[in-house]
Amino acid sequence: MATGGRRGAAAAPLLVAVAALLLGAAGHLYPGEVCPGMDIRNNLTRLHELENCSVIEGHLQILLMFKTRPEDFRDLSFPKLIMITDYLLLFRVYGLESLKDLFPNLTVIRGSRLFFNYALVIFEMVHLKELGLYNLMNITRGSVRIEKNNELCYLATIDWSRILDSVEDNYIVLNKDDNEECGDICPGTAKGKTNCPATVINGQFVERCWTHSHCQKVCPTICKSHGCTAEGLCCHSECLGNCSQPDDPTKCVACRNFYLDGRCVETCPPPYYHFQDWRCVNFSFCQDLHHKCKNSRRQGCHQYVIHNNKCIPECPSGYTMNSSNLLCTPCLGPCPKVCHLLEGEKTIDSVTSAQELRGCTVINGSLIINIRGGNNLAAELEANLGLIEEISGYLKIRRSYALVSLSFFRKLRLIRGETLEIGNYSFYALDNQNLRQLWDWSKHNLTITQGKLFFHYNPKLCLSEIHKMEEVSGTKGRQERNDIALKTNGDQASCENELLKFSYIRTSFDKI
């Protein structure tokens, strides 16, 4: 039985969820670079991206490699990797027998973001014989899940209580170790020597080791999670996991709180800001991140802002960003909400898709409305799209047979046209069989910064309504002859009103 693990408890099935942008060198404390989270699957090609990484700022997932063999891993080693800020997950990587050479110096898994409450997941690794993470000293947050690894031993010899604050939620089941077939031998045991430290858990006094050649490092209890030197002297209180010299914040392997210019500090002093819960960055760093993602459509890219001495992905609820200094300031009234469309555009074809934009005031991208039916549609669209004030790209209304009016965009005031449909149009209306009105132009103002209007096959939309939009939106004169079809717009509506004058002759039985 794995020490510190839980057996036999019912657990939810383990679901495996399925960018080499360097964020800056980590400095003297770390020998390499800070790398983003990685999802490495199918083959070993991307694994080489770990070569210079000291910190993975995010998670590391290595999974679904069915053609790899043990010899493929023999020359692979990433000794610079010290810390993973989120979680480490391995799933069905064939041929991998140990992690001792792959990650010989991995010391800390912070667990800032977890995989279903777990910071370390080893699942269905069919050839893994031992973990071998002999320098792993601290899992700051989260638990361990090690399950269905039929060859995995050296679990009962690990004292997880020396690595985690609590072992109650560890789930370590259905491994070879369960069948008591392992016969784990710690260093020196074969020669009758006791080389590794022994600890007591559940009444068992057991030597602690990761492999037959690597003991588990056990520091004096007084050192807590700070770690200790090879001689057993406690590291500085700002260290986490390990250090090369005692009581020196510049000799830590990793930091308990924050890293700044080669030393570990309790908090980031001005003019620095907390970033990702582990390091200090200056304003320029946060500003660069903001600008890199301002026009990016890459998933996970955030326009970072500053709030409460932190550089964070977005302002919290009730705050909006001051564009001059990136500071989050309290909103006066309802907060603006910028919604970034991942692929640059979004099609609204149902109430469900409209709900995804609920509360958005600025759309960074283009909207395509293609709704053919739905219950209580006008009210639903207004509830979900009615706060949109600005669209950076274009607005396209296409084959939306259920629409009679666009009044559900009740606050839309600006279409920038930074991206144009077919390279020309910022407003595009095609084949809307029941569209009769755009907006009530006596109450609604709309500016279209650039781009043209396109109207074709809107049989109940009168040309007068379209011409009014040209005047109000500032697009009059931009359109070419064929942009607004004269014969297919309003051709099934009563669009022309003329005053009919009647004269009559009164007659009676005795007068003409």
Rank of each mutant, 00 (worst) to 15 (best):
V218H: 14
S237C: 12
I62P: 01
Q287K: 06
N195T: 15
D247L: 09
L136R: 01
Y134W: 14
W278L: 01
F103N: 00
A190T: 10
T107W: 04
N117P: 01
L332G: 15
H274A: 14
Q299H: 05
I62C: 00
V108A: 09
V173Y: 04
R74Y: 07
K224D: 10
L63C: 01
T229W: 07
I122P: 06
N135C: 05
T267S: 07
E231N: 09
Y319Q: 14
M65L: 09
L136V: 05
C255H: 01
M83A: 07
K67M: 05
A190R: 07
G241K: 04
S225V: 06
Y30P: 10
P79H: 07
G300L: 12
L136Q: 04
H48V: 10
T68V: 05
L332E: 13
I139R: 00
C243I: 01
F103G: 00
L128K: 00
F123G: 01
N179S: 06
G183L: 15
R256I: 10
C280Q: 03
K310C: 10
N117Y: 06
H214Y: 06
N149A: 10
S317N: 04
A119G: 06
C255Q: 03
L260I: 11
N322G: 07
S284T: 06
F205H: 11
N322R: 04
H214E: 13
S237G: 10
Q299A: 07
P104S: 01
L44D: 08
G227Q: 06
L326V: 14
F205I: 07
K176P: 03
P31I: 01
Y94R: 06
T68Y: 05
C293M: 07
I84S: 00
I62D: 00
N175K: 13
H212C: 05
A190C: 08
V144S: 03
W160F: 07
N105W: 02
L128M: 11
I306H: 01
N308A: 05
Y154I: 04
T157I: 06
L64Y: 00
R256G: 03
T140K: 09
K294L: 06
I163G: 01
L128T: 03
V253A: 12
S225E: 06
H212L: 11
S284C: 01
T189S: 09
R145T: 02
L174V: 11
Y171T: 09
K148L: 14
N105K: 11
L47W: 00
E124Y: 00
H236V: 03
T107K: 02
E181P: 09
R162C: 11
L240W: 03
L131I: 08
W160P: 00
I172G: 01
Q303H: 06
S213L: 10
C311E: 01
N117D: 10
K217T: 02
K100L: 08
R256S: 11
P36A: 09
I185F: 15
L89T: 02
T157H: 07
T320N: 10
E231G: 14
P316T: 03
G300C: 08
E33F: 06
C315W: 01
V200G: 04
P31T: 08
P336L: 12
G37C: 04
F66P: 01
M321R: 11
P197F: 08
P31R: 12
E124W: 00
L47P: 02
N195F: 14
C280M: 00
L64P: 00
N195R: 07
V121E: 01
R74G: 02
R263F: 12
D75R: 04
K251N: 11
Q276S: 11
P220Q: 05
S77F: 11
S237M: 06
I56V: 06
D277I: 04
L128F: 10
T320L: 08
S213K: 14
C239F: 00
G333N: 15
P249M: 07
K129A: 08
G32M: 13
H302R: 10
S296V: 07
N309W: 06
P197C: 08
T68N: 03
D277C: 03
R162T: 10
N138E: 00
L326T: 05
S317E: 02
L155C: 05
D165T: 12
L102P: 00
G227F: 05
P270M: 13
T211H: 03
R256N: 15
Q61L: 02
L64T: 01
N242R: 12
T199K: 11
L136C: 01
T189F: 13
M125T: 01
M65A: 07
C209V: 04
Q276R: 13
C223V: 01
I185E: 07
M137D: 00
L120Y: 01
S112G: 08
M137L: 10
Q216G: 05
D178R: 11
N135S: 09
E147F: 01
G188V: 05
E238I: 02
L44A: 12
G192I: 01
P246R: 10
N282V: 03
D184L: 05
L289S: 07
E314S: 04
L99T: 05
G203Y: 07
N138D: 08
E207H: 15
T68G: 14
Y30S: 13
N179V: 07
F78M: 02
K217V: 11
P187D: 05
E151V: 13
S237L: 07
R298T: 11
R208S: 05
T250V: 09
R297Q: 09
V144Q: 00
G183D: 12
T329F: 09
V34T: 13
L29R: 15
E180N: 13
F275R: 02
R141C: 00
L102Q: 00
C234T: 00
R256F: 11
T85F: 01
F66Q: 01
E231W: 10
K310P: 01
L327I: 07
L88F: 07
R74H: 14
S244Q: 04
R46Y: 04
R113F: 08
V305G: 09
I158Q: 04
K294A: 15
K129T: 06
R110G: 08
G111H: 01
P334L: 14
N322S: 08
N117R: 01
D248P: 00
W160L: 05
N117K: 01
V218Y: 07
E168D: 01
P187R: 04
W210Y: 04
I306V: 12
F205T: 15
L96I: 03
Q287A: 15
I172P: 08
I56Q: 02
S284N: 10
E57C: 06
C239Y: 00
V121Q: 00
R141W: 01
P187N: 06
Q276E: 06
P79A: 08
H291M: 14
G300R: 13
M321Q: 14
Y171A: 06
G300W: 05
T45V: 12
K191P: 05
C286N: 07
G132R: 00
E238V: 05
E57W: 02
R41P: 00
I201E: 08
V305H: 04
E49H: 14
C215W: 04
E168Y: 11
G262C: 02
A156M: 09
Q276F: 08
I158L: 11
G183T: 11
P36S: 08
G333R: 15
A190S: 09
D184W: 13
V108I: 14
S323F: 04
C255K: 04
E49D: 06
C196G: 09
S213E: 09
H290Y: 11
N179R: 15
P336V: 11
K67N: 03
L88W: 02
C239W: 00
I82A: 10
P270V: 07
I82Q: 06
H214C: 08
G95R: 05
L327N: 14
L60G: 00
L50P: 00
C235N: 01
V200M: 10
L88P: 01
T211E: 15
S324G: 03
P197H: 08
G333D: 15
E147H: 00
C239D: 00
E71N: 13
A119I: 02
C186R: 00
L81V: 05
A254K: 05
F205N: 15
C53R: 00
P31K: 07
L50M: 07
N202Q: 12
W210P: 01
L106F: 02
F66N: 00
L76Q: 08
E57P: 00
V281I: 07
S112R: 13
C234S: 03
P270S: 11
P70I: 13
P271M: 12
D177F: 09
G142H: 01
N138Y: 07
P271L: 09
R162P: 05
A190W: 14
E57H: 10
F285R: 03
F258M: 09
L326S: 07
P330S: 14
N117I: 00
D288F: 05
D184I: 03
E130R: 09
R298L: 11
E151C: 08
F123S: 01
K224M: 10
T320Y: 07
F91L: 02
G95M: 05
I109P: 00
W160I: 00
I185D: 05
P330V: 10
D247F: 08
K176D: 04
E51L: 07
D159S: 05
D72M: 15
P334M: 15
